[in-house]
Structure formats: C-alpha cells, structure tokens
Design a binder for these strands. Structure first.
Length: 816
DNA sequence: GAGTTTGAAACT
DNA sequence: CAGTTTCAAACTC
C-alpha cells in the first residue's frame, strides 16, 4: 500500500489543482463558500478524533452490539477493485451494487473471522495514517451495519443509496432530510452516514454524536443532522465529495487505490459512493432527490426493495439525477466522463449518460456502420476495442441482461467514445442497433486514439477538427439527444423510406443506390485513388469529414491520424477559395422567397452556390451539381442546354410539367425532396440554436436529417468532422461544410437560421466575402452566398438561407 | 466489375 | 482569367 500511496501522490499532485477547483465549486454550489481542499491538516484533525472515538466507551458499546467486527480498510478497498467489477455477475442490476454486496459479504466473512482483535489495533494505527480517513469511513459502514441489522437484509443497495443521498444532500447542503419517515432503516442509515461524516470531519462533536446514535440505536435523524451541523468540516465533506468525483473522473480504479493518501482514502470511499450513485442513480436517484428536498421513506423503500430499475421512468430519473447533479454542481459529476475503465466505470457511465450525451454523430455513425455487426455484437465489439473501454463495454454488456431494454444502455459507458455510444443507445429507439454500435469500435470516434485526439481538439487546438461528439463532454445534453435519435433514426430508416417510395422507378433507383452505397448501409464513401483524399475531389474531404472504413480510398490521408496534414491541406484550399468547403447548395427555407433570379422559382428554392458548368449532361444527371443538389440552375450557372428539372437556368424550368415530362421520376423525387427539405429545415431550425454551438447539430442536420431521395444516399458517415467546430473557421459553427456529407450535396448546404441568429456577415446582403468574391453570373468560381440572396426581395421570413461555411473574415481574400 | 463519360477541381 | 490536366463520381454496359 505504501508504494501505491506514493504513486498516487504523484498523480495526485497533478490532479490536485483540478480537485481544488472542484472543491471550490462544491463550496459554491453548497452556498457555504468553498471549503479548503482536503489536505493533510484536515486529515490529522480527522484522525485524532477518530482515535479517541475508538477508545471511547461508545465505540466499545457499538462493537458489543454487533457481532460483526469492523473491517480492515484494506479489505474494503479491494472489493471495489476493477477486478471485482469485471467478475460481477450479469445478474446484478447495477455493478456497484453487486460490488457492494460482495464487499459486505467479504466483510461479514471476516467478521466471523476470529481476527477481530486486529480490528481495534489496526484501526488505531490506521487512524493516524493517511488511510485512517478511509478506514473511518469504512468503519462507519461497519457501524452502520452493526447498528442496523436490517441493513443486512436490505443488502448493499440500501447502503449505497444512503451514501448517495448523503452525498447529494451534503453537496447540495439542502439537508432537508425528512427523518420523520417511519422507516427505521432510513434512520440508521442516515445516522451512519452522519457518523461517517462526523468521523471524517474529525470534530470532537462527532463523538457525542456517535454516542447518541449508538445508544438510541436508530436515533432520530434530527440528532444526526445536529451532529453533522456541528461539524464545521461539513464543508470538507463536500470537498471530499468533489475530490471523490475527481478521482472517478480521472483515475482508474487502480489509481484510486494508488491514492492511498490520506484524503485519498476518503475519496475512495467517496468514489464508491459516487459509483453507487452512478449505478444506482437510476434506481435511487428519485429517493435521493426526494431526500434532498425533504423526502422520506419512499425513496428509501425503493432502495431497500431493490426493485428492478423502473424502465419506464428511467429517463425521468436520469433527468432528475441530472438536476440533482447540477445542484451538486461542485461535485462536477459531469467530469466523470473521461473515465477510465475500472470499477468506477460502471458507475460513471451513468453519470456520463446524463452529461455526455451527445455524440450523436458517433451514434449516428456507428449506427450505420455497426449494423453489420448486429450478428456478432458482443464478440466483435469487445475485441475491436483494445482499450479498457472495451473491457468495460463487455462488462456492461454483461450487465445489460440484467436490465432489459433501455436500461442496459445505462450500464454502459465505459469510455468517452463508448460512452457516447451508450448514451446514444439511451435513446430508446436504438436498442439493438446502437447496441451493436457500441460493440464495434472501429469508427474514428470509437477508436481510442481518435477519442484522444478529439479530446485534444476540444480542449486545445482550434477545433478545426472538431468532433461533434464532444458535446457530451461539454455538458451538452438534452438538446442533442433528440438530434441523436433523429440522426440515428434517419440512418436507420433511410433504406426503408426509400423503399417505401413506391414508384417502380424509384425502387430501382433505390436499389441501385443501396447497392452502390453498400448494402451494409455502410457508408460507402469516397473512392479516391490519387488524391489521397486531401482534395476536394474527395467527397469525404470536401464534406469536412474523415474517411471511414466504408471508403474505398487508397493511400488515404484523410484520417485522424493525419490530422495535421488534413488541416494544413484544408487551410491551403481555403486560402485559395474560402468557400471551398462551403455548402455547394444553398437552400432557403420553404418560406424564404427567393434569391434573386428567376431561377428562384425553383421548387427547391435553393441554388447552387457557384452554379454548374455542364455542357453535355443537360443538367439532368448527377454530373450536374445543381441537379445533384436538387436545385435548379441559376444565373450563376454556365451550363449549356440546361434542362434541369429543378429549374432551368433561364428560369423556365421550375418543376413544371415540362420537367415532369422529361423526368418523370425526377419529379416525384422532387416532391419527396421537398418534403424532406421541410423536415430538414424544421429540424435545423429547432436544433440550430446559435448558442448551442454544438457541432453536433450541424452535423446532425447534415447527416441525419432527411435523406435526399435521389441523392447519393450514402449512409451517414462517421463523424469526425473536420473543422466542424467553431474553431479555426468561425464559420464552422454555421458551416456545414464540414458537416456536409457527400450525399447532402443537396441537403447539407441548406441551413436555415433565425435571422437574429445569423452572423452579421451572413445577414448582410453584401457580406464582405460577397464583395470579395461576388462573381458575375458567369464567373466560374465561387460566388458568394450573398449573391444568391442578394436580390432576394423577400427576405421576410425569419429564416434565412445561410451559407454555412462562409468565412467570417473578409480579410482573407484580399486578392479578389 | 470494367470501361466510359462527365464536370469539378487543380494546375499552368 | 482562360486553357489544360487531373481526378473521381456518375453512368453504361
């Protein structure tokens, strides 16, 4: 232990800062001002009183009361080791619970063990040591058990629950326990907890408090509260909690063990608590919340009864939990996200569920990619992920069976990426598919390395390479969820939708598409051979996304591994043409009037950014970008013999009968497209919360949203979008470029934004860029978005058509 | 699946 | 800016 302790210290040093900050938060959250981070001094304080406590007659009395002896600290810690978790039987609903049970089981065994005598001596020794704190906590547990025989019956869950509740309460400082609850168990538990607290606090007051508890047996809660309040170190407790959270977050279980430091122990205990919180949250959260708000036995009963997790209300629970956590604030549970595999993982996942939800892209992606794996989800999944996360996952899977349906998802959350995936699963719709998704880790995001890169991106670099999935880390939540679902759904349903479009021709098209796209639904992406996927030839690159497995590209550099190269190349291209990654098609919302030229009549009410240059295809084939994008040709087009079914360059051809005649199928498609557009727009509008920065949103809209009937139909890609976030190219935020998947040439570009939300640049008819790039209709290269809109007389609608990727800096294009 | 066509992107 | 080349998707068989 000593060795570990030192190691732990080293780590501790690094993390200490964070923890401290956490502590501060905690304090604020509690409203009591930040307590000092748990330091050695506190420990000493704590230790001393404990020592006395053991000597006190009360202590002896307690010992006499229960046949059980206090357990040695060491043993306690072990039960929570990752190993234990790993071995957890799938039967157990929540990992932590089982772990707890196991630990107790062990303890009891040991209790019966004649080694009892050790206990007193050991404890004393430990009290003085750093370990003492934790030991105390454990002792308190022991005491609890001894005090409350019922607890034995109730098993671990009860304890954990209480601990959790306690934590929550403490953190929130609400402390509105309703001790009036008839349930005796409740009382004892609280009392025990309180004892723990008091012990930890190490105040002299703790002793009397304990006495009362011991004497009264199940003393009124009021007493407990008093005891707690007496303790000035209450704050410390909160701090401890936060620290514990930190541990959860940053340390693997082993690390936690390593942290044998004084506080560490307590932290460990806390960690457990957290873990229990996490795993049990679903079950217990309600009760905890209730307690926090002056609740009573109801919640407790739930715990004791160990009712299977309520599936129906689970989400609600989660929400509540989140709320609670928010209240805890300081605890920064959300930080638990980057968890390492270990015992804690089991727990954390839950927390993560709440916080880190939104990696919809991942999910999205995964959903598509993973369908393949439906058959061998478990095996492939675990095998694919080399990292601990994988293991976790497997564990989770084991756990899954215990909780039927959605619940399983809750258990998951091993690593960030996985987490997200798991989260994704949270969405009910995806039980199976998403499940599979989790298992296969190949996607960029899933890839541990990628995950890491993502992190880095998030934190430090200019997000040029942004991962939408990161949202989760940022605490984005709810807003994203629906998106995820939608996205996933979209991907999932695409095929069916298409098929549903009954026209025979259509089916044919669809079939073809499917074939091309890859039956696997996989996203067949680019097929570059010479460009290394670093040129706009590459659809993936052009779309601002990394190439993924489905791609058939050769010598591909458009991968996270070559992030630098990708970024550099991208910059280069953008330097050449700032709008290079902008959506090719700018679509206005339904209500939006038109952009300028007659072509505006186009049903799609959208325009190709730069216009096509078709000579032979008559703009009736996908060679034509306008056609491909489902928009009519405009004045900007330099096409010859335009017959674009969506609108001719000369403006004659809206979707008119003519078009119909020529392109029967096309017309029907159009209508479909139209619908899809509407849907998309709606989604976008709802999602596009400017503040939501969420990269995911754009992505989501881009990828997830309605699939164009005739567009490539390539399934959604995985999602490491390049430059998706606001970083380097501020536009990214709005910009779809990165998000625009190839298929969406048509759809992606279109984005509706509330006017007020629009960046000024975009709003102005003449954006700087426009000024720079404004091209004559015939000009070959990029024509600024504003040009398209410029003439639009009718911008009445609140929504506008925005060129998402419009660079916000005019200065870039001096030359023009 | 191979070959052709096409037009955008890239280059000069 | 225009012409040419390169490239990969779209298309055909």
């Amino acid at each position: 232990m000593g060795e570990e302790g030192e190691e732990g210290k080293e780590e501790k040093e690094g993390e200490k800062l964070e923890r401290e900050s956490e502590s501060e938060e905690c304090g604020r959250g509690g409203g009591g001002g930040g307590g000092p981070p748990m330091d050695t001094p506190d420990r000493s304080r704590i230790a001393t009183p404990l020592y006395k406590f053991e000597d006190s007659p009360v202590f002896n009395y307690i010992n006499n009361l229960s046949p059980f002896e206090t357990v040695k600290p060491i043993r306690i810690s072990q039960p929570f080791n990752s190993v234990n978790f790993a071995s957890l039987p799938s039967i157990f609903t929540s990992p932590h619970v089982s772990s707890l049970k196991g630990s107790r089981f062990l303890r009891r065994h040991q209790f019966s063990d004649p080694s009892k005598p050790e206990f007193s001596s050991d404890n004393r020794n430990k009290v003085g040591s750093n370990d003492g704190v934790i030991d105390d906590a454990q002792d308190s547990d022991e005491l609890q058990e001894s005090f409350d025989p019922g607890s034995f019956i109730g098993e671990g869950p009860v304890e954990s629950t209480y601990e959790c509740s306690k934590l929550a309460n403490v953190a929130s400082r609400t402390l509105n326990y309703d001790y009036g609850s008839p349930d005796c168990r409740t009382m004892p538990c609280h009392g025990i907890d309180t004892n723990c607290v008091s012990k930890l606090a190490g105040t002299s007051g703790s002793v009397p408090f304990v006495q009362e508890v011991s004497q009264t047996g199940f003393v009124g809660s009021g007493v407990h509260l008093d005891g707690i309040r007496n303790i000035d170190h209450y704050k410390d407790w909160a701090t401890m909690i936060s620290d514990a959270n930190d541990l959860l977050i940053f340390h693997s279980p082993d690390d936690a063990d390593a942290f044998k430091g004084t506080l560490q122990k307590p932290l460990d205990s806390e960690t457990r608590l957290c873990a229990s919180l996490g795993s049990e949250f679903t079950h217990d959260e309600v009760s905890d919340l209730q307690k926090t708000q002056a609740v009573g036995p109801v919640g407790v009963e739930q715990h004791e009864s160990e009712n299977p997790p309520p599936q129906v209300g689970e989400e609600d629970h989660l929400k509540e939990i989140e709320t609670t956590r928010d209240a805890l604030d300081g605890t920064s549970l959300n930080k638990c996200v980057p968890v390492e595999p270990g015992e804690q993982l089991d727990n954390e996942p839950i927390s993560n569920l709440h916080r880190g939800m939104r990696r919809r892209c991942l999910v999205f992606d995964m959903a598509g990619a993973r369908r393949k794996h439906l058959d061998d989800s478990s095996s492939s999944g675990s095998s694919m992920l080399p990292q601990p996360d994988v293991n976790i996952e497997s564990n989770d899977k084991q756990l899954v069976p215990t909780k039927p349906g959605n619940d399983s998802s809750h258990c998951i959350l091993p690593g960030i990426g996985l987490h997200l995936n798991a989260l994704a699963r949270t969405s009910k719709e995806y039980s199976v598919v998403s499940h599979e998704t989790l298992s296969s880790g190949r996607q960029l995001i899933n890839d541990p390395s990628s995950t890491a890169s993502i992190h880095s991106l998030n934190t430090g670099q200019d997000q040029y390479l942004a991962v939408t999935s990161m949202e989760g880390n940022m605490g984005l939540t709810e807003s994203g969820v629906p998106g995820m679902e939608d996205a996933s759904q979209a991907s999932g349903y695409i095929a069916s939708e298409e098929l549903n479009q009954s026209s025979p021709k259509k089916k044919r098209h669809v079939q073809r598409r499917l074939e091309n796209a890859g039956e696997s639904e996989g996203c067949k992406r680019c097929n570059c051979k010479k460009s290394k996927c670093l040129k706009l030839y590459c659809e993936c690159f052009a779309a601002g996304v990394y190439c993924v497995e489905p791609c058939s590209c050769q010598d591909c550099y458009n991968k996270p591994i070559h992030e630098d190269t990708v970024l550099a190349t991208r910059k280069q291209i953008e330097s050449r043409n700032p709008l290079a990654f902008a959506p090719k098609v700018i679509r206005s919302s339904d209500s939006v009037p038109e952009i300028g030229d007659e072509s505006s009549k186009t049903p799609a009410s959208a325009r190709h950014k730069r216009g096509c240059n078709c000579k032979k295809s008559g703009c009736l084939k996908k060679y034509c970008e306008c056609y491909q994008g489902g928009v009519g040709c405009s004045i900007n087009c330099r096409c010859e013999g335009c017959k674009n079914a969506f609108g001719r360059k000369d403006g004659s051809g809206t979707i008119g009968a003519e078009a119909e005649l020529e392109e029967e199928p096309e017309v029907s498609e159009k209508s479909v497209i139209h619908k899809s557009l509407h849907t998309n727009l709606i989604q976008n509008s709802s999602e596009q919360n400017p503040d939501s920065t969420l990269p995911a949103t754009p992505l989501h809209s881009g990828r997830a949203s309605v699939q164009l009937p005739f567009s490539k139909n390539k399934p959604p890609r995985s999602f490491l979008s390049i430059g998706s976030s606001s970083g380097f190219f501020g536009n990214q935020r709005f910009g779809k470029p990165s998000f625009l998947p190839p298929q969406p040439k048509f759809e992606k570009p279109i984005q509706t934004v509330q006017e007020d939300e629009m960046p000024e640049i975009l709003q102005g008819n003449c954006s700087p860029i426009g000024a720079i790039k404004s091209a004559s209709p015939n000009s070959k290269r990029v024509s600024p978005p504003h040009c398209d809109f410029g003439s639009s007389p009718g911008r009445r609608s609140s929504r506008k058509l925005i060129l998402q990727s419009i660079p916000s800096f005019p200065s870039l294009n001096p030359k023009d």
